[in-house]
Amino acid sequence: MLIAQITDIHLGFDPDNPAEFNRKRLDQVIAMLRELDPVPDMLLATGDLIDRGDEDSYRRLRNAFSVCPFPVHMCMGNHDQRDTFLSQFPDVPVADGFVQYEVDAGPIRLLVLDTLEEGRHGGAFCEVRANWLNARLAEQTARPTLIVQHHPPIEVGIEWMNTHPEEPWVQRLRNCLANRPNVIGMVCGHVHRAIVSQWNGFPVAICPSSAPQVALELAPIDPDRPDGRNMIIADPPAFALHWWNGRELITHYETADEHVMLARFDEKMQPLVRSLLAERPV
Protein backbone atom coordinates (compact mmCIF):
# COMPACT_ATOMS: atom_id res chain seq x y z
CA MET A 1 0.00 0.00 0.00
CA LEU A 2 1.32 3.44 -0.99
CA ILE A 3 0.10 6.52 0.88
CA ALA A 4 1.05 10.00 -0.31
CA GLN A 5 1.12 12.95 2.08
CA ILE A 6 1.15 16.68 1.56
CA THR A 7 0.93 19.25 4.30
CA ASP A 8 0.94 22.95 5.14
CA ILE A 9 -0.49 24.10 1.82
CA HIS A 10 -1.45 27.56 3.15
CA LEU A 11 -3.68 28.30 0.19
CA GLY A 12 -4.86 31.90 0.28
CA PHE A 13 -1.70 33.37 1.80
CA ASP A 14 -1.81 35.75 -1.16
CA PRO A 15 -5.61 35.90 -1.49
CA ASP A 16 -5.99 38.48 -4.25
CA ASN A 17 -3.48 36.89 -6.61
CA PRO A 18 -5.03 34.52 -9.21
CA ALA A 19 -1.53 33.10 -9.84
CA GLU A 20 -0.83 32.55 -6.16
CA PHE A 21 2.61 31.13 -5.34
CA ASN A 22 1.23 28.51 -2.93
CA ARG A 23 -1.41 27.33 -5.43
CA LYS A 24 1.29 26.86 -8.06
CA ARG A 25 3.32 24.82 -5.60
CA LEU A 26 0.29 22.70 -4.69
CA ASP A 27 -0.51 22.05 -8.35
CA GLN A 28 3.12 21.09 -8.92
CA VAL A 29 2.96 18.44 -6.19
CA ILE A 30 -0.38 17.05 -7.35
CA ALA A 31 0.89 16.81 -10.93
CA MET A 32 3.88 14.78 -9.79
CA LEU A 33 1.74 12.47 -7.65
CA ARG A 34 -0.57 11.80 -10.59
CA GLU A 35 2.40 10.76 -12.71
CA LEU A 36 3.86 8.31 -10.20
CA ASP A 37 4.07 4.63 -11.05
CA PRO A 38 2.47 3.14 -9.08
CA VAL A 39 -0.08 5.85 -8.38
CA PRO A 40 -0.68 6.29 -4.62
CA ASP A 41 -3.67 4.52 -3.12
CA MET A 42 -4.63 7.69 -1.28
CA LEU A 43 -3.47 11.18 -0.39
CA LEU A 44 -3.30 12.60 3.14
CA ALA A 45 -3.47 16.39 3.45
CA THR A 46 -2.37 16.96 7.03
CA GLY A 47 -3.52 20.41 7.98
CA ASP A 48 -2.93 24.10 7.42
CA LEU A 49 -4.83 23.44 4.23
CA ILE A 50 -5.46 27.15 3.84
CA ASP A 51 -3.91 30.19 5.46
CA ARG A 52 -6.73 32.40 6.76
CA GLY A 53 -9.68 30.09 7.36
CA ASP A 54 -11.75 31.66 4.58
CA GLU A 55 -14.39 29.95 2.47
CA ASP A 56 -12.96 31.01 -0.87
CA SER A 57 -9.60 29.36 -0.15
CA TYR A 58 -11.33 26.10 0.80
CA ARG A 59 -13.32 26.34 -2.42
CA ARG A 60 -10.11 26.69 -4.42
CA LEU A 61 -8.58 23.81 -2.46
CA ARG A 62 -11.52 21.61 -3.44
CA ASN A 63 -10.93 22.61 -7.06
CA ALA A 64 -7.22 21.72 -6.81
CA PHE A 65 -7.98 18.28 -5.35
CA SER A 66 -10.68 17.55 -7.95
CA VAL A 67 -8.07 16.27 -10.44
CA CYS A 68 -6.71 13.64 -8.03
CA PRO A 69 -7.32 10.05 -9.22
CA PHE A 70 -7.13 8.83 -5.60
CA PRO A 71 -9.15 9.66 -2.48
CA VAL A 72 -7.96 12.64 -0.41
CA HIS A 73 -8.25 12.52 3.39
CA MET A 74 -7.77 15.80 5.24
CA CYS A 75 -7.19 16.87 8.82
CA MET A 76 -7.20 20.18 10.66
CA GLY A 77 -4.18 22.41 11.30
CA ASN A 78 -3.85 25.58 13.31
CA HIS A 79 -4.59 27.79 10.27
CA ASP A 80 -7.82 25.91 9.53
CA GLN A 81 -11.35 26.71 10.63
CA ARG A 82 -13.65 23.73 11.18
CA ASP A 83 -17.03 25.22 10.29
CA THR A 84 -15.77 26.91 7.15
CA PHE A 85 -13.89 23.77 6.12
CA LEU A 86 -16.97 21.61 6.58
CA SER A 87 -19.10 24.01 4.53
CA GLN A 88 -16.92 23.14 1.52
CA PHE A 89 -16.18 19.52 2.46
CA PRO A 90 -19.45 18.36 4.06
CA ASP A 91 -18.70 14.67 3.48
CA VAL A 92 -15.68 14.63 5.79
CA PRO A 93 -16.68 12.74 8.97
CA VAL A 94 -16.99 14.54 12.29
CA ALA A 95 -16.98 13.12 15.82
CA ASP A 96 -18.28 15.21 18.72
CA GLY A 97 -17.71 18.37 16.68
CA PHE A 98 -14.11 17.48 15.79
CA VAL A 99 -12.76 16.38 12.42
CA GLN A 100 -11.78 12.90 13.60
CA TYR A 101 -12.49 9.72 11.67
CA GLU A 102 -11.30 6.28 10.65
CA VAL A 103 -10.12 5.30 7.17
CA ASP A 104 -10.31 1.62 6.28
CA ALA A 105 -7.28 1.16 4.05
CA GLY A 106 -7.41 -2.60 3.56
CA PRO A 107 -4.28 -4.05 5.16
CA ILE A 108 -4.08 -1.15 7.62
CA ARG A 109 -6.41 1.43 9.08
CA LEU A 110 -5.85 5.12 9.65
CA LEU A 111 -7.13 7.17 12.56
CA VAL A 112 -7.25 10.85 11.61
CA LEU A 113 -7.05 13.16 14.63
CA ASP A 114 -8.04 16.79 15.11
CA THR A 115 -5.32 18.72 17.01
CA LEU A 116 -6.74 22.18 16.28
CA GLU A 117 -7.54 24.67 19.03
CA GLU A 118 -8.74 27.73 17.17
CA GLY A 119 -6.68 30.79 18.11
CA ARG A 120 -3.68 28.72 19.22
CA HIS A 121 -0.60 27.99 17.10
CA GLY A 122 0.35 24.80 18.92
CA GLY A 123 -1.59 21.57 19.21
CA ALA A 124 -4.48 20.50 21.39
CA PHE A 125 -6.13 17.21 22.29
CA CYS A 126 -8.92 17.36 24.86
CA GLU A 127 -10.66 14.61 26.83
CA VAL A 128 -13.49 14.40 24.28
CA ARG A 129 -11.02 13.69 21.48
CA ALA A 130 -9.06 11.31 23.69
CA ASN A 131 -12.20 9.33 24.53
CA TRP A 132 -12.94 8.94 20.83
CA LEU A 133 -9.40 7.74 20.13
CA ASN A 134 -9.41 5.26 23.01
CA ALA A 135 -12.72 3.83 21.81
CA ARG A 136 -11.44 3.38 18.26
CA LEU A 137 -8.20 1.78 19.43
CA ALA A 138 -10.11 -0.63 21.65
CA GLU A 139 -12.22 -1.82 18.72
CA GLN A 140 -9.30 -3.39 16.85
CA THR A 141 -6.31 -4.13 19.04
CA ALA A 142 -4.35 -6.22 16.54
CA ARG A 143 -4.87 -4.46 13.22
CA PRO A 144 -1.95 -2.27 12.04
CA THR A 145 -2.99 1.33 12.69
CA LEU A 146 -1.48 4.61 11.48
CA ILE A 147 -2.15 7.85 13.38
CA VAL A 148 -2.61 10.94 11.21
CA GLN A 149 -2.58 14.50 12.60
CA HIS A 150 -1.22 17.98 12.00
CA HIS A 151 0.84 18.79 15.10
CA PRO A 152 3.79 16.54 16.00
CA PRO A 153 3.94 15.73 19.74
CA ILE A 154 7.74 16.04 19.82
CA GLU A 155 10.44 18.66 20.18
CA VAL A 156 12.10 19.17 16.80
CA GLY A 157 15.03 21.40 17.80
CA ILE A 158 13.78 24.50 15.97
CA GLU A 159 12.84 26.41 19.07
CA TRP A 160 10.14 28.67 17.66
CA MET A 161 8.36 25.62 16.19
CA ASN A 162 8.87 23.22 19.11
CA THR A 163 6.23 21.30 21.02
CA HIS A 164 7.11 20.96 24.69
CA PRO A 165 6.91 17.30 25.80
CA GLU A 166 5.06 18.26 29.00
CA GLU A 167 2.22 20.12 27.31
CA PRO A 168 -1.08 18.68 28.62
CA TRP A 169 -2.32 17.69 25.18
CA VAL A 170 0.89 15.72 24.54
CA GLN A 171 0.54 13.85 27.82
CA ARG A 172 -3.10 13.06 27.06
CA LEU A 173 -2.25 11.74 23.60
CA ARG A 174 0.68 9.74 25.01
CA ASN A 175 -1.63 8.04 27.49
CA CYS A 176 -4.02 7.07 24.69
CA LEU A 177 -1.26 5.53 22.58
CA ALA A 178 0.77 3.89 25.34
CA ASN A 179 1.15 0.11 25.06
CA ARG A 180 -0.47 -0.07 21.63
CA PRO A 181 1.83 -2.44 19.73
CA ASN A 182 -0.45 -2.35 16.68
CA VAL A 183 0.23 1.39 16.13
CA ILE A 184 2.75 1.33 13.29
CA GLY A 185 3.51 5.05 13.29
CA MET A 186 2.30 8.62 13.21
CA VAL A 187 2.46 11.07 10.30
CA CYS A 188 2.29 14.82 10.89
CA GLY A 189 2.97 18.20 9.34
CA HIS A 190 3.18 21.68 10.89
CA VAL A 191 6.97 22.13 10.99
CA HIS A 192 7.50 22.63 7.22
CA ARG A 193 10.49 20.27 7.24
CA ALA A 194 11.23 16.57 6.74
CA ILE A 195 11.90 15.17 10.22
CA VAL A 196 11.84 11.63 11.62
CA SER A 197 11.84 10.60 15.28
CA GLN A 198 10.67 7.98 17.75
CA TRP A 199 7.88 8.70 20.23
CA ASN A 200 5.93 6.38 22.49
CA GLY A 201 7.64 3.38 20.91
CA PHE A 202 6.72 4.04 17.29
CA PRO A 203 8.09 6.26 14.49
CA VAL A 204 6.88 9.80 13.88
CA ALA A 205 7.35 11.08 10.32
CA ILE A 206 6.92 14.81 9.77
CA CYS A 207 6.26 15.78 6.17
CA PRO A 208 7.84 18.83 4.53
CA SER A 209 5.40 21.40 3.21
CA SER A 210 4.08 22.20 -0.23
CA ALA A 211 4.28 25.86 0.84
CA PRO A 212 7.77 27.34 1.54
CA GLN A 213 9.86 25.47 4.10
CA VAL A 214 11.09 26.45 7.57
CA ALA A 215 14.83 27.12 7.72
CA LEU A 216 17.03 24.69 9.66
CA GLU A 217 18.20 26.88 12.55
CA LEU A 218 18.89 24.95 15.75
CA ALA A 219 20.38 27.76 17.86
CA PRO A 220 18.26 29.05 20.76
CA ILE A 221 16.10 32.03 19.89
CA ASP A 222 15.49 35.09 22.10
CA PRO A 223 12.09 36.64 21.32
CA ASP A 224 13.38 39.99 22.60
CA ARG A 225 16.48 40.08 20.38
CA PRO A 226 15.84 39.69 16.62
CA ASP A 227 19.10 38.31 15.26
CA GLY A 228 18.36 38.23 11.53
CA ARG A 229 18.36 34.43 11.30
CA ASN A 230 16.65 32.68 8.40
CA MET A 231 13.11 31.58 9.20
CA ILE A 232 11.24 30.79 5.95
CA ILE A 233 12.99 29.65 2.76
CA ALA A 234 11.69 29.04 -0.75
CA ASP A 235 12.94 25.47 -1.11
CA PRO A 236 10.99 23.37 -3.62
CA PRO A 237 7.51 22.09 -2.70
CA ALA A 238 7.75 18.64 -1.17
CA PHE A 239 5.70 15.60 -0.18
CA ALA A 240 6.03 12.21 1.50
CA LEU A 241 5.31 8.67 0.35
CA HIS A 242 4.56 6.10 3.05
CA TRP A 243 4.87 2.50 1.87
CA TRP A 244 3.37 -0.29 3.97
CA ASN A 245 5.10 -3.51 2.94
CA GLY A 246 3.11 -5.73 5.26
CA ARG A 247 5.69 -5.52 8.04
CA GLU A 248 6.97 -1.95 8.36
CA LEU A 249 5.99 1.55 7.33
CA ILE A 250 8.72 3.03 5.12
CA THR A 251 8.72 6.78 4.46
CA HIS A 252 10.29 8.52 1.47
CA TYR A 253 10.52 12.29 1.01
CA GLU A 254 10.61 13.93 -2.40
CA THR A 255 10.51 17.40 -3.92
CA ALA A 256 8.18 18.28 -6.76
CA ASP A 257 10.99 19.80 -8.77
CA GLU A 258 12.94 18.94 -11.88
CA HIS A 259 15.74 16.49 -11.17
CA VAL A 260 18.98 16.29 -13.13
CA MET A 261 19.10 12.69 -14.34
CA LEU A 262 22.55 11.07 -14.18
CA ALA A 263 21.61 7.47 -14.99
CA ARG A 264 18.66 5.58 -16.43
CA PHE A 265 17.81 1.89 -16.62
CA ASP A 266 19.29 1.05 -20.01
CA GLU A 267 21.65 -1.61 -21.36
CA LYS A 268 24.59 -0.07 -19.49
CA MET A 269 22.79 -0.30 -16.14
CA GLN A 270 21.20 -3.70 -16.81
CA PRO A 271 24.11 -5.81 -15.45
CA LEU A 272 24.08 -3.90 -12.15
CA VAL A 273 20.32 -4.33 -11.71
CA ARG A 274 20.53 -8.04 -12.53
CA SER A 275 23.35 -8.62 -10.07
CA LEU A 276 21.62 -6.75 -7.26
CA LEU A 277 18.35 -8.64 -7.70
CA ALA A 278 20.18 -11.96 -8.00
CA GLU A 279 21.55 -11.52 -4.45
CA ARG A 280 18.09 -11.67 -2.92
CA PRO A 281 16.26 -14.83 -1.82
CA VAL A 282 13.80 -16.18 -4.34
Results as ranks from 00 to 15, higher is better:
Leu173Ser: 05
Glu155Pro: 06
Arg143Ser: 07
Glu102Gly: 06
Asn182Met: 10
Asp257Trp: 14
Ile233Lys: 08
Pro226Thr: 01
Leu110Ala: 02
Ser210Phe: 04
Arg109Ile: 08
Phe13Ile: 15
Leu262Trp: 10
Ser66Lys: 03
Ala45Cys: 13
Leu272Glu: 03
Phe98Gly: 05
Thr255Pro: 06
Asp224Leu: 12
Pro181Leu: 14
Pro69Met: 00
Asp257Thr: 15
Pro90Asn: 06
Met1Cys: 12
Glu20Tyr: 06
Glu117Ile: 08
Val191Ile: 15
Ala142Phe: 10
Ile158Leu: 15
Leu241Met: 14
Tyr101Asn: 05
Cys126Val: 13
Trp132Ser: 09
Asp14Ile: 07
Trp132Ala: 10
Asn179Met: 11
Lys24Pro: 00
Phe125Val: 06
Asn78Arg: 13
Asp37His: 12
Ala142Gln: 14
Pro38Ser: 01
Thr255Met: 14
Arg34Met: 13
Leu133Glu: 01
Val99Phe: 09
Pro220Arg: 09
Gly106Met: 06
Gln100Asp: 03
Pro69Ile: 00
Gly246Gln: 08
Phe89Val: 07
Thr84His: 04
Arg62Ser: 04
Arg59Tyr: 03
Pro144Gln: 11
Thr251Val: 13
Ile221Leu: 10
Ile232Pro: 03
Leu61Tyr: 01
Arg172Asn: 11
Trp244His: 07
Ala263Gln: 13
Ile184Phe: 03
Asp14Gly: 04
Asp96Met: 10
Phe89Ile: 07
Gly106Phe: 04
Pro165Asn: 07
Pro38Cys: 01
Ala211Lys: 07
Ala234Tyr: 11
Leu49Gly: 06
Phe65Lys: 03
Arg143Asp: 06
Leu61Gly: 00
Leu86Asp: 02
Val187Pro: 00
Arg180Phe: 06
Leu111Tyr: 07
Pro281Val: 05
His252Tyr: 14
Asp51Lys: 12
Ala142Ile: 05
Val282Tyr: 14
Asp80His: 06
Val99Met: 07
Asp104Gln: 14
Val260Arg: 15
Asp51Ile: 02
Gly12Asp: 09
Arg172Glu: 02
Phe265Ser: 07
Gln149Ile: 09
Arg174Thr: 13
Arg143Val: 12
Leu49Lys: 08
Leu262Asp: 04
Asn230Lys: 15
Arg225Ser: 09
Val112Met: 05
Asp8Lys: 10
Glu166Gly: 04
Thr145Gly: 08
Gln100Leu: 07
Glu217Asn: 14
Gln5Thr: 04
Val99Glu: 05
Val204Gly: 05
Leu249Glu: 07
Pro90Glu: 03
Met261Trp: 09
His150Tyr: 08
Ala219Tyr: 06
Met186Glu: 12
Ile233Met: 08
His121Met: 13
Ile250Val: 15
Asn200His: 13
Ala178Arg: 11
Leu262Arg: 13
Ile206Lys: 00
Asp104Gly: 02
Leu11Thr: 04
Leu111Ala: 05
His73Ser: 03
Pro281Asp: 12
Ala211Cys: 15
Pro40Asp: 00
